[in-house]
Structure formats: C-alpha cells, structure tokens
Amino acid sequence: MLMADRIIAASIMALSLYFMWHATELPIGWNGKTGGPGGGAFPFWLSAVMFCCAGGILVRSYRGKKIQSGPFFDPETLSWVVSVAIALVVAIALIPWAGAYIALPLFLFWYLKVFGRHGWVLTGILCIATPVFLFFFFEVTLKILLPKGLTEPFFLPLYARFF
C-alpha cells in the first residue's frame, strides 16, 4: 500500500511536469495587452499545484508514522482484473482491423465461456444477440457506423437492405 501510494504520487509528479512542459508552448504569464493570463497559464499553474500536492503526499509517506497497511492489490483476485484488462485492450486493438462485429463477440466469448465458465447456450445467445442488437441500434436507427475493418464487404448487402 505504502509503495503503491509513493509510485502513484511520483507518477502524478511526472505527469504534471509533462503537462507543464506542454503548456509552455503558449504564454504562461500575464498578458499585458489583452489583460489576464495567456493560453498556457491555466494548464501550467494547475499542473504546478498538482506537482506540489503529489510532492506533499510523497514527503508525507516518508515522514508519517501511521501508514495504511495491507497489500495494495488483493492477491486472490488480481489475476482476474489483469486478465480482464488485457482482454479489453486486445478487443479494442482488434476493432479497427477485424471490425467491431468480430472483436466484440470474441471478447464476449472469452469473457463468458473462458473467464466466466458459463454454458454454451448462454454464451451463444449473448455472442449472437449483442452484435445483432448493436447493428440495429447504432447502424440502422442512429446511423452511426461502427468500424468494420476486414469485414466491410460482408456488410454491403446489409447496407443495401437497410439504408
């Protein structure tokens, strides 16, 4: 817990520095002509405050005596969280390439069948019903086209039918 607190505080400090460096592309000081601060002032000084507060947390973690104990992650369930996060990232990465209608059912299949250990019937129903719902809700009703990637040609007859 203590270590995690320090790592997060240090990361925030690094992030603030990165923000501050970016913000300096625009004037960060007082602009005499128009009155008021320049375009970079808001992000710059807010990040500076963030930097100081995160520094304060870091300093406090070394000085304080009473520290929250216990591990940061629950060792039993950490692997679950990590695998879901990885699956999510893989699914998102697949979307532009294989299309939402392949990537999302794959994700559902992994989640329900492999991760959740559900039966074939439930998995099958959800893996088929979800893309059908998404197609009719987003593409047909809202006219929002989801990325199709490689599967684009297969949708041409559907477009012809519904648009």
Binding site: Y111, L112, F115, G116
Partner: peptide
C-alpha cells in the same frame, strides 16, 4: 460475469 461482459461491451 454476464453483467460485466455486457457493460464492458
């Protein structure tokens, strides 16, 4: 797990 999967999608 069913709820989580649907929410994530």
């Amino acid at each position: 797990t069913v709820l989580c999967a649907i929410v994530l999608v």
